[in-house]
């Protein structure tokens, strides 16, 4: 049973790995260019596991930004995970022991969140599934970073293989799978529109994805109101 759950988690992580390898490689190349050693670049992916946060950090290191600026930028980029993480609690409670759930939640990313929440719609959460999904995804990210840092600019352009669309395709597909209730459609459409309007009016929100936080707060509230009318 546990082994089956672990296998399922690893299997569900493979599409994520497909997207993380090129992104991790790009990070490794940039980190090396910014003056990090191979060990530092790889350890950053081991310890941080924050795609956007790591890119911004490298950019700021290269631009000679202050350490405090780097930390503030990372708070802004990662704050959305408070919301993501909180929304997983009802699914984990009673299924995964709190200590294990907390520890494995280190591996919560946009992608593992999307895949896990889809899985939890019709399967109870388990420690083994969570471990398989999060650790495999993390290994993909670490492996990509290491490859990028070692091979540097020898890497050919991965865009030509269409891998740049791996994560957008995954979001699209999981969004479609996730829409079950009538209210979900309205939540999804309003979240997308609000997200773009905020991103248009305040382009700086696009770089830390804070537009997604505001859009989610409004759209989820709308969902409760629509759902309550039935």
């Amino acid at each position: 049973m546990m082994q089956k759950e672990l296998k399922q988690g690893i299997k569900d992580a493979l599409p994520i790995v497909l997207g993380y390898l090129p992104l991790g490689m790009a990070f490794g190349v940039l980190a090396k260019e910014a003056g990090l050693s191979v060990i530092q670049a790889t350890m950053m992916s081991v310890l941080c596991f924050t795609g956007a946060g790591q890119y911004i950090t490298i950019g700021l290191i290269q631009a000679g930004g202050a350490i405090i600026t780097i930390f503030v930028a990372n708070v802004l980029v990662n704050i959305r995970y408070l919301l993501f993480s909180t929304s997983t609690v009802p699914y984990l409670k009673g299924h995964v022991p709190p200590l294990i759930a907390s520890l494995l939640s280190y591996g919560l990313t946009d992608e593992t969140y999307a895949v896990a929440m889809n899985h939890y719609q019709d399967h109870p959460a388990t420690s083994a599934y969570m471990a398989g999904l999060n650790l495999t995804s993390h290994l993909g990210w670490i492996g990509g970073s290491l490859l990028g840092a070692v091979l540097g600019s020898f890497i050919t352009n991965t865009d030509q293989f269409g891998l740049g669309f791996a994560l957008p395709a995954m979001y699209t597909c999981l969004l479609i799978f996730m829409i079950k209730r009538r209210a979900d459609i309205w939540v999804a459409v309003s979240a997308a529109v609000i997200c773009l309007v905020i991103g248009y009016l305040a382009p700086s929100t696009m770089s830390n994805l804070s537009n997604i936080i505001f859009a989610t707060l409004i759209a989820a509230t709308l969902g409760v109101i629509i759902n309550g009318q039935h």
Partner: peptide, 10 residues
């Protein structure tokens, strides 16, 4: 509703 909203935004 957080997950559908987040996925739509992403």
């Amino acid at each position: 509703f957080v997950a559908p909203a987040v996925l739509a935004g992403l």
